[in-house]
């Protein structure tokens, strides 16, 4: 067994977290709360120390550029956010949130159209048929796309032929979800393998 603190400390916390599998206990709770504080502090330092400070010091140190005055606006709004966090509600904070949402929406609007709508539409428009494997697969994909789209209808209940489409859409979705569930299970198993490998190899030296 390893006695190196860089192995031993992680081993102890790993086992502490695994203890929840037996039952709820204070050790698990303690480690969990410690982790929350550490993670918040870690993100804070990365953002402030490697992001904000170099940018600000560069802006202050560089020769005066009229366009950098524009940066004062979001900076003021950001200060408004910090003030509202300590209890002083300011209008600046409202501008900060509204501005961020507007920029986010504006940037997303054409890109969502392009990446999720137009590209996906175009990819469905390929020659298809029953004579070749490629054509057959393309046909199945197209049917799946059309039925899945028909499954979601918000203005009125699908009836007749539309209901048939909607039902097929549900079944198509279930196939996709089944495949995804299996892949997800696979990915989670890997995480566990990682932890076990750490315990068995690095801590207890049971495997090479």
């Amino acid at each position: 067994m390893s006695t190196d603190p860089s192995i031993l400390i992680p081993a102890v916390v790993t086992l502490a977290v695994f203890s929840i599998l037996y039952r709820e206990n204070p050790v698990f709770r303690a480690v969990e709360r410690l982790g929350v504080g550490l993670a918040a502090g870690y993100a804070f330092i990365l953002i402030v120390r490697t992001g904000l400070i170099p940018r600000l010091s560069k802006a202050l140190g560089a020769p005066f550029d009229p366009s950098s005055v524009l940066l004062l606006l979001p900076l003021a709004a950001g200060i408004g956010l910090v003030m509202s966090a300590v209890g002083h509600r300011t209008q600046l904070a409202r501008f900060a949130v509204a501005g961020a949402a507007a920029i986010g929406a504006g940037l997303a609007l054409p890109l969502l159209m392009q990446a999720l709508v137009l590209s996906q539409m175009k990819a469905s428009m390929v020659p298809m048929g029953l004579s070749s494997v490629v054509g057959f697969n393309a046909l199945v994909i197209a049917i799946c796309v059309l039925t899945t789209m028909a499954y979601f209808s918000f203005t009125r209940e699908p009836t007749g032929i539309r209901a048939l489409f909607a039902i097929s859409g549900l079944y198509t979705l279930m196939i996709a979800f089944g495949a995804t569930f299996a892949s997800l299970a696979m990915s989670r198993i890997t995480l566990l393998i990682g932890r076990f490998l750490f315990l068995l190899r690095d801590v207890f030296h049971l495997v090479q």
Binding site: M121, K122, S124, M125, V126, P127, M128, G129, A142, V145, L146
Partner: peptide, 9 residues
Amino acid sequence: IVVGIIGAR
């Protein structure tokens, strides 16, 4: 999309 599928053909 339906028109596109026919169009591709």
